[in-house]
Design a protein around this nucleic acid. Structure first.
Lengths: 170, 170
DNA sequence: GTCTATATACAGATAGAC
DNA sequence: GTCTATCTGTATATAGAC
C-alpha cells in the first residue's frame, strides 16, 4: 500500500494520489486501506519515515567506501529507481505540495549527506558545490518523472561532470 | 488576482491555493474571480505564461551584460523576491503537484538559460555545472519558502561559491 | 463587473456487515 | 482484515440578481 502511494505520487503527483486511487492501485478498497493507515496523514508520515530510514542506511553504506565517496554520491543523485531515490522524489513532491513535515524530513536527509561528505571535501565551499549539484540533479529528475525526459547529461557527459566536480571540490 | 494566486502557491503550496482562497486574498468574491479567469486551469495557465514572458525579458537583459554573465546568473538564482523568482517558485510548485504544462514551461525556461549561457562557458560540462548549481539553489529556495530557513550559503560563503563555479566552468 | 446562492463532484473518514 | 454504504466537508463551476 505504501508502495502504491509512492508510485502514484511519483507518476501523477501528490494531487492525484487520493485514498481512492491508492486503494485501487494497491488492489484493496478504501476501507481496507484505512484499516492499516488510519488517515491520509498517517500514510504520508509512513512514507517520510521510510525515506529517512533508507537515507540513514544509504549514508552508513557510503561511509564504508571512503575512497570516491563524493563521486559515488553524485552518481546516486541521478535517479536509478532505487527505493531511496523513489522515496526522495515522492518526499520532495509532498514537500512542494505544502507539507511542512515533508520539507523538514528532506532537510534532515540533506544534513545527513552534508555531515557524511564534509570530511572528504577540500573546504565548506567545495562541500556546498557537491550538495547543490546533487540537488540540481534531483530537482530535474523530480520534474521529469511524469513528464518529458530530463535535460540532464547522460553517459560520458555525466562522467565528465562528476569528474569536474570531484576535481574542483575535493 | 494573479499575484494573489502566485503568493498563495508560494506561501502555502498549490494545495492551499483554492479559488476561494485566491478570491479572498485578492479582495474579490469567487464569482468575481471566475469572471476574469473562467477556470482554475485558466488561472494556472496565465501564471505560466507570465513566467515565460518574465524569463524571456530576463535572458534578454542578461545578454546585454556579457561580462560576468555566469556570476550574475548564479546570483539571480538565489531568491530575492523578484517577479521572475516568485513566478519560478510558483511554477515549480505547480509542476511538482502534477501539472504537466508547468513542468514543460520550466523546461522551456531552462533551455532559454542554457542557450544564453553556452557561449560564456568553457565547454558543455562547465555549462551543465552552472545550470545544476542554479537548479540546486532554486530547489532549496522552493522547499524553504513556507517552512524552515534554507541551508544555502549566504554572504561571503555564497560569493566564494560563485567564484569557484565561475573559475571552474568559464 | 461583481455579488450571492446553488449545483455538482469528489475528497477524506466512519459504520457496520461479513 | 476487508468489504460496501454513507456521512461530511470542501472545491470547482454555474445561474442569475444587482
Amino acid at each position: 500500500m505504501l508502495d502504491a502511494f509512492e508510485s502514484l505520487v511519483i507518476a501523477e503527483g501528490a494531487r492525484a494520489a487520493t485514498m481512492d486511487a491508492v486503494a485501487g492501485a494497491a488492489g484493496v478498497s478504501k476501507g481496507g486501506l484505512l484499516y492499516h493507515f488510519a488517515s491520509k496523514e498517517a500514510l504520508e508520515q509512513a512514507l517520510l519515515e521510510r525515506m529517512l530510514e533508507l537515507a540513514r542506511l544509504d549514508v552508513d553504506d557510503m561511509a564504508r567506501h571512503p575512497e570516491g565517496i563524493v563521486a559515488a554520491f553524485l552518481r546516486s543523485s541521478v535517479m536509478d529507481d532505487s527505493p531511496l531515490d523513489r522515496a526522495l522524489i515522492a518526499g520532495s513532491r509532498l514537500a512542494q505540495s505544502g507539507h511542512t513535515a515533508a520539507a523538514e524530513a528532506l532537510r534532515d536527509v540533506r544534513t545527513l549527506w552534508e555531515d557524511a561528505l564534509r570530511p572528504h571535501t577540500r573546504d565548506e565551499t567545495g562541500l556546498q558545490l557537491v550538495l547543490l549539484v546533487s540537488d540540481g540533479l534531483y530537482f530535474n529528475n523530480a520534474l521529469g518523472a511524469g513528464a518529458v525526459a530530463g535535460p540532464i547529461p547522460e553517459g560520458e557527459d555525466f562522467e565528465a561532470l562528476v569528474d569536474l566536480v570531484v576535481r574542483t571540490a575535493c
